[in-house]
Nucleic acid binder design. Structure first.
Length: 824
RNA sequence: GCGAAAGUGGCGGAAUUGGUAUACGCGCUAGACUUAGGAUCUAGUCCCGGAAACGGGUUGGGGGUUCGAGUCCCCCCUUUCGCACCA
């Protein structure tokens, strides 16, 4: 907003902050319900307030902002909100380390980061900001929990959980990382511990979560989620132990039932106790103890030899009445299926290895068609291929792929099994033995059991006067008074749940709270919901493919079934930005010293240049290593834009009439072609070509000015369209130059320009002349040239004659408006 | 091991449907202006031959389909990511 009369250098610092303040003061980006405009909900993943914004935040936010700005200019009523995912461990770690209260630490970080985010110049409607650790927010996180509990979608269960001995907390399956199963946060090997925990029934939605129809989500994410959910079709088959207990297994290969030569239970399986004979007991107990004491690192390390012990017990194979020994081994997981398997060593590689290790029988029941069945003792690996059934009672001789249905019919008819589908997905464990989270709103009454806190008593607020030392117990448990309360049902003394919720719970519904962050009659205002939902575009990192994005889909579906939300999916389109690596092509990290600090870049180049460079320097969905020299290119671009708009224009070199007309037609063609291209590219997340197209157009405009275009109508149009096209990328500069052109504030209210198709159309084409597929000549030709004329031109070409070397053309291919290929 | 994605100049990348490969930018080279410049401007910059005109080659490697392949198909190599005893 500097004085327009004095020509000056491009100094973004002189106007960027001023424009941002004005936009905010004027509520330029306020997003309110507006029945006249089509709503569009553009959502970008909210950050954790770690304390300092890094370049990755910019990379996530700026292109998403540019696209939201584009859609807004296109006439959509765009909701583009921002907030903070503010509960979580780092706040407590900071408290432990530096003695700052987590709340104080968190809010100080938010204040700092909010200011940093604002320097990007994004069009966030800050009135809609949410902070998930605010009681006004987590009141409703708790409300959702209570809803889930009342609808039997939450339950409490004692189970072995992953436990990080360093963080002193349970971890979700997803927070256990890598080959050797380490804690996501501190890299400590994870161990098992038995605790009462709250779970959500995500598995009830496993089947529906596999359905992505109607969603414009990357294949990659769909694949990751599908594999994570891990659907397997097969059967539950019930064996009977000699002690008379039912022993159920899940198998995907019921066609191999006649090949069972042993059974294996997970060491934690409840029947281990009763199956174990007295003479085997000492050995079995030692093995179980070893297995539970071991960390998963040791237990699940790759390529480990199979271990296990015989329980001394036997079970009866229901298909043939055979007596098979029951073993326990840690390669069978208690958490999958029924925690027990039937051992078919001839046709399952894991069972094969186990049988070989312990000298168990290997019995072939499927053999390759046309060959004699091999002897089990001679196999070197399991036979997993299809074939012909043998030694399988009534099914002997049947092709194995046909046998499957017959076996299933058989076991269902006989009543010892049934068709079944099993999923790898587990129910979502949400309990955390931590302080800095939303308290689970449950009261334990000696008489009434676990009772959800009534809605009118929410939120259950976190007490602020706690000790957050890493004792291994929840700090809430140690608080002298907090947990003591009365039962909401009977009024008798009772105790509060002292665990808090997984922060993924907070982020599963934040997109709903943006709709009406201060609404107090429910988690969101239904009017706002009707207007904005579902989310049109959701953008963020691929790292959330299997956690957050499954949870939020589950959450939405559960809420739909509870009558809270509508529709099957919360987010219609998903896009993931890539990662910016350090200049050394390594992951950015403080220890490597390759971290790019956005604040310094803004100070040096201005916000628009940083924005433009982030959009330009790589394909957004891919990312690339940072290049500190590369940013000079976009800095130069904006400087050249500035100079074109503000620089002295010499007296136009008056061309003669027809040459000038041609020059201006050319200029308009380039402008409108660029407009078509830029429009497409904003829409489709191809931000790098938005910038390159604008760079090219700028070069054209400099040339046109050189040719004397300045001062003409076409020139004035070019200037205005250029700023409109640039506005989503460089909002400050576009606004500043718009004002200097004398146009009315604000360019960000200007409708997106329409492409003038006639102006964009080419008058002439370069007809490419090929001989046998190789380019030999190029001829300027009218755009509507017909085949006959094009052929004449091509055959008249000297280059064509030369390369035909006297051969007659056998065939001529004509691609209208593009090329002609003479085959000879 | 299984699954997915990607390989185009020194670098990031462009090429909307099978139709001019290497746009745009960085870097580099030469020059202009300059006390200087990490400022600005001009010209050049895939490789080989050639003074040039021009010719030949080139999208990880090999094969195929086609008048024509960076783009489609098959095999191989490399890289990245995800999963990793899930019965």
């Amino acid at each position: 907003m500097s004085d327009a009369r004095t020509p000056d250098a491009y100094e973004p610092a002189s106007f960027e902050a001023a424009w941002r303040e004005r936009w905010e003061k004027d509520g330029l980006y306020d997003a309110d319900i507006d029945p006249r405009r089509e709503p569009y909900y553009a959502l970008t993943m909210l950050p954790y307030p770690s304390g300092d914004l890094h370049i990755g935040h910019w990379y996530a936010i700026v292109p998403a902002d540019a696209r939201a700005r584009y859609l807004r200019m296109r006439g959509y009523n765009v909701l583009f909100p921002m907030g903070f995912d503010a509960f979580g461990l780092p706040a407590e770690n900071a408290a432990i380390k530096r003695g700052i209260h987590p709340k104080e630490w968190t809010y100080a970080n938010i204040r700092h980061m909010r200011g940093q985010i604002k320097t990007m110049g994004p069009m966030f409607d800050w009135r809609r900001e949410i902070i998930s650790c605010d009681p006004e927010y987590y009141r409703w996180t708790q409300w959702f929990f209570a809803q889930l509990l009342r609808n039997d979608l939450a339950y409490r269960k004692s189970s072995p959980v992953d436990w990080c001995p360093s963080c002193n907390t349970t971890l979700a399956r997803e927070q256990v990382i890598g080959d050797d199963r380490r804690c996501e946060r501190c890299d400590t090997p994870v161990i098992k511990r038995e605790l009462d925990q709250w779970f959500f029934r995500t598995t009830s939605y496993a089947e529906e979560l596999l359905d992505f129809s109607g969603l414009d989500w990357p294949e990659r994410v769909q694949t990751l989620q599908s594999r994570w959910i891990g659907r397997s079709e097969g059967a539950h088959v019930t064996f009977r132990t000699e002690a008379g207990d039912d022993l159920e297994v899940f198998t995907t290969r019921p066609d191999t039932l006649w090949g069972v030569t042993f059974m294996v239970l997970a060491p934690e399986h409840p029947l281990v106790e009763t199956l174990t004979t007295d003479e085997r007991r000492a050995e079995v107990e030692a093995y179980v103890e070893e297995a539970t004491r071991q960390t998963d690192v040791q237990r699940e390390s790759a390529d480990r030899d199979k271990t296990g012990v015989f329980t001394g017990g036997y079970a009866i194979n229901p298909v043939n009445g055979e007596r098979v020994p029951v073993w326990i081994a840690d390669y069978v997981l208690v958490t999958y299926g029924s925690g027990a398997i039937m051992g078919v060593p001839a046709h399952d590689q894991r069972d094969f290895e186990f049988a070989r290790r312990f000298g168990l029988d290997v019995r072939v029941v499927i053999h390759p068609a046309g060959e004699a069945p091999p002897a089990g003792a001679e196999l070197t690996e399991a036979l997993v291929a299809k074939g012909v059934m043998c030694a399988s009672g009534p099914l002997t001789g049947v092709a194995s792929d046909q046998a499957m249905d017959q076996v299933l019919d058989h076991i269902e008819r006989e009543g010892f099994g049934r068709r079944a589908v099993t999923y790898r997905l587990r129910d979502w464990l949400i309990s955390r033995q931590r302080y800095w989270g939303a308290p689970i709103p449950v009261v334990y009454c000696p008489k009434c059991g676990p009772v959800p806190v009534p809605d009118d008593q929410l939120p259950v607020e976190l007490p602020e006067d706690v000790d957050w030392r890493p004792t291994g117990e929840s700090p809430l448990k140690l608080h002298p008074t907090w947990k003591h309360t009365t039962c909401p049902e009977c009024g008798e003394p009772a105790e509060r749940e002292t665990d808090t919720m997984d922060t993924f719970m907070c982020s599963s519904w934040y997109h709903l709270r943006y709709l009406s962050p201060h609404y107090d009659q429910g988690p969101f205002d239904p009017r706002e919901y009707e207007h904005w939902m579902p989310v049109g575009t959701y953008t963020g990192g691929i790292e959330h493919a299997t956690m957050h994005l499954i949870y939020t889909r589950f959450f939405h579906k559960a809420c739909r079934d509870m009558g809270i939300t509508r529709g099957d999916e919360p987010m219609l389109q998903l896009r993931n930005q890539g990662i910016i690596l350090g200049e050394d092509s390594e992951k950015m990290s403080k220890s490597r010293g390759n971290v790019v600090a956005p604040d310094e870049l803004v100070e040096r180049y201005g916000s628009d240049t940083v924005r433009a460079y982030l959009m330009f320097f790589a394909r957004w969905e891919q990312g690339a290593p940072w290049n500190s020299q590369g940013i000079e290119g976009t800095a130069r671009w904006l400087r050249r834009v500035w100079n074109l708009f503000t620089g002295e224009v010499g007296a136009p070199a008056k061309a003669d009439g027809s040459a000038e007309a041609a020059l201006l037609r050319h200029l308009r063609r380039k402008v409108h072609q660029a407009l078509a291209s830029v429009s497409h590219d904003y829409e489709h997340f191809e931000f790098n070509t938005v910038v390159s197209t604008l760079m090219e157009l700028l070069n054209e405009m400099y040339a046109a000015r050189e040719g004397g275009a300045a001062g003409t109508e076409a020139w004035d149009e070019a200037l205005r369209l250029y700023l409109a096209m640039m506005a989503p990328t460089a909002p400050h500069l576009a606004e500043e130059l718009w004002q200097r052109l004398g146009e009315a504030y604000s360019i960000h209210h200007r409708p997106w320009p329409e492409v003038d198709e006639a102006a964009a159309a080419e008058e002439e084409i370069t007809l490419v002349i090929q001989v046998n597929g190789k380019v030999r000549d190029k001829i300027q030709a009218p755009v509507d040239i017909d085949r006959q004329r094009a052929e004449e031109l091509a055959l008249a070409s000297e280059a064509v004659h030369k390369h035909l070397e006297g051969r007659p053309p056998r065939k001529v291919i004509y691609v209208p408006g593009r090329l002609i290929n003479v085959v000879g």
